[in-house]
C-alpha cells in the first residue's frame, strides 16, 4: 500500500489524472473525499463490498442443505409477498 499524507484541499493524482482524489474536509474522525474518476470505473465504499462478500459466503449451501431449506425459505418468501 502506498501511503501519502495530505492536508485539506490537497489531492492525489492516479494514472495521469484519470483518477483524482481530493481531501475536502476533515471533521474529527471523518474525512470527506472528492473523487473524480471515469464513469466506467465503479467507486464504492469498501464496506459494501465486504458485506456482500460475507453474505455470499454465508449463503452458500451444500445440495443437501439447500434441499432441506427450500420449503422453509419458499414459505417465508410467499408470506412476505402476501403481506
Amino acid at each position: 500500500m502506498l501511503v501519502l499524507t495530505r492536508k485539506i484541499n490537497e489531492a492525489v493524482n492516479i494514472h495521469h489524472g484519470e483518477i483524482v482524489i481530493t481531501v475536502l474536509t476533515v471533521e474529527g474522525e471523518r474525512v470527506k473525499l472528492g473523487i473524480v474518476a471515469p464513469k466506467s470505473m465503479s467507486v464504492l465504499r469498501q464496506e459494501l463490498l465486504d458485506q456482500v462478500g460475507q453474505e455470499n459466503q454465508s449463503a452458500a449451501l451444500s445440495l443437501k442443505e439447500s434441499n432441506r431449506q427450500t420449503a422453509h425459505l419458499r414459505e417465508s418468501l410467499l408470506q412476505k409477498v402476501d403481506a
Binding site: A60, L61, S66, T70, L73, L77
Partner: peptide
Amino acid sequence: DLAPLMYLHSLDQTDLTFI
C-alpha cells in the same frame, strides 16, 4: 415446484449452490 425460488448451482465447486 420451487417457484418463486430458483437454484444457482456452482459449476466450479461440486456440491455448492445458492438459493
